[in-house]
């Protein structure tokens, strides 16, 4: 195992544990997403795994030397008054790299992350997406074996978010064995990951591999756009006994084996049918499953019972 936590707890103040992890093992090369709502403990777990936060009790074991652990925070950490190149030079030295290593690595990363034309520009003059790319270069400078990402696309527009993940996916060209651990609450941006840890109230409520997670929902998803979401949702839950996710106030998601059959039933109920603006049938994807799991974990913990607890298995 490359990083392990055992009987681990972390508290920001002595009265209240922010995180409790009985056992968690992470193997080299794993791509892990820490998923949960705001305040669920994702960032805390990330910082505990990275060694930035020290245990209040229990043990953290890490087989990687500190120079090979890198972090990307929620906001870029570069000095905005300096150029990208000056920043990389300074951070390279802080990480203990030699000048020749820094220069070689900077050129390599500039090419990979499309930073060549930005190296001489001050960070403050760059767009949010460009600053993120430069910050990712900063993190990758020391050729890390583990890269921790704490909601790295916070504040970016959709295009910049997509660009960031595409570039991160390319880092496997530099180091295929790179262990990635990322905290996120955006279900749509987790395509890169193979293992998912769902957190709620500072506990890992579900630890699951990608295939197993995908098998948790039926293959088809019915997306309903409606101006009376509550009424339609109640009908689907009560009359058709379907589990409904409501990601937005006018959108409902239902995961079923045959979505067409549900649409047919809806057409027969005039009160409900009239309230529906559009229906779309598509294959269930990873984002659907993550979203559904987020809602069920939250509802289960909130209600005091767990629908399915795979915590720390």
């Amino acid at each position: 195992m490359i990083v392990s936590l055992s009987d681990f707890s972390f508290a920001y103040n002595p009265d209240n544990n922010a995180l409790v992890v009985p056992k968690l093992d992470i193997a080299a090369g794993e791509k892990i997403a820490l998923v949960g709502r705001n305040g669920s403990g994702k960032s805390t777990l990330l910082h505990c795994l990275s060694g930035v936060f020290e245990a209040s009790s229990g043990k953290r074991a890490c087989r990687v030397e500190p120079q090979k652990v890198a972090l990307v925070f929620q906001t870029p950490c570069l000095d905005k008054k300096l150029t990208v190149l000056e920043n990389l030079l300074i951070f390279g030295k802080v990480w203990g790299l030699k000048r020749a290593q820094i220069e070689h690595r900077t050129m390599q990363l500039a090419q990979l992350l499309d930073l060549e034309s930005l190296l001489q520009k001050t960070v403050g003059s760059l767009s949010g997406g460009q600053q993120r790319r430069a910050d990712l270069a900063r993190a990758l400078l020391s050729e890390p074996e583990i890269l921790f990402l704490d909601e790295p696309t916070t504040g970016l527009d959709v295009v910049a978010q997509r660009e960031f993940w595409a570039l991160l996916a390319q880092t496997k060209n530099l180091n295929p064995a790179l262990t990635l651990i990322c905290a996120s609450h955006h279900a749509a941006e987790l395509g890169l990951f193979e293992r998912f840890l769902f957190l709620e109230q500072g506990r890992v409520e579900l630890d699951v591999k990608r295939e197993e997670l995908l098998s948790k929902l039926p293959p088809e998803t019915l997306e309903i756009t409606t101006f009376q979401a509550q009424q339609v949702k109640e009908f689907l839950q009560q009359a058709l006994s379907l589990a409904v996710t409501e990601p937005m106030h006018n959108k409902l998601l239902i995961h079923v084996d045959e979505a067409e059959a549900v649409v047919s039933k809806l057409k027969l109920i005039s009160g409900v049918h009239d309230a529906i603006e559009a229906t779309t049938i598509r294959k269930t994807n990873l984002a659907d499953v993550v979203l559904r799991q987020l809602f069920s974990t939250h509802e289960a913990v909130g209600a005091g019972t767990l629908i399915e607890s795979g915590a720390n298995r």
């Binding site: 652990v69 906001t75 950490c77 203990g96 900063r138």
Partner: peptide, 13 residues
Amino acid sequence: QSGFLRAILASPA
């Protein structure tokens, strides 16, 4: 406040 110090303190420096 800008985050620069955070990255330095999180480094092995």
